[in-house]
């Protein structure tokens, strides 16, 4: 499990002003905490592709957004990603829920195909990423923000556990 409180503290430390995304089972508690966090506004989208476009507009308008979506929605967003944060060179943190992470363990009873596609897709789309599995590694969020800033391109942190 990942602590929503610790993740929100990392986001606040990085001056994130807006979280743009769509809740899922893994991020449910994180979204609930974000909705109560005065320093960060949550913009909830109808489909994840919008999150890339809206966040790009927010960034170019002078604020500091990040995305929070599940890997299923990330895959749906291909052209939105390409045509906004990638082609516009937006230095943005992508928090992506890693649905099916545990099904990749050898011997798991079933494999969730979205999990098998996620990392190869991130690599194909040239998105640097890290995998967050434990609260002790929460600084990966700050590292991801810095990486995005240094390259002026998106960087991802994959949330491999449900948030609590």
């Amino acid at each position: 499990m990942l602590s929503a409180k610790i993740i929100v503290e990392e986001l606040k430390k990085q001056g994130i002003t807006h979280i743009v995304g769509l809740p899922d089972n893994g991020s449910r508690v994180l979204f609930e905490l974000l909705w109560e966090t005065a320093e960060i506004e949550v913009i909830q989208v109808s489909r994840e592709g919008e999150a890339f476009a809206i966040a790009s507009g927010i960034y170019l308008g002078g604020k500091n957004p990040a995305l929070l979506i599940q890997n299923t929605g990330f895959l749906e967003s291909g052209d939105a990603f390409r045509g906004t944060v990638h082609n516009m060179r937006i230095p943005i943190l992508l928090l992506i829920g890693y649905r099916g992470y545990k099904t990749l363990i050898p011997g798991a009873p079933r494999v969730d195909s979205v999990a098998t596609f996620l990392e190869p897709t991130l690599k194909a789309w040239d998105i640097p990423y890290s995998i967050l599995t434990d609260d002790k590694e929460a600084e990966q969020i700050s590292i991801g923000v810095k990486k995005a800033g240094d390259t002026s391109m998106p960087a991802a942190v994959l949330l491999a556990e449900e948030t609590t």
Binding site: A53, I54, S56, G57, I58, G61, F81, G83, T84, N87
Partner: peptide, 19 residues
């Protein structure tokens, strides 16, 4: 142009929120 197809209106929404 050369951007995300169909994503001008939501991009503009983000700009309007920030500005």
């Amino acid at each position: 142009v050369d951007s995300g197809m169909g994503h001008a209106a939501d991009f503009a929404h983000g700009l309007a929120i920030a500005q």
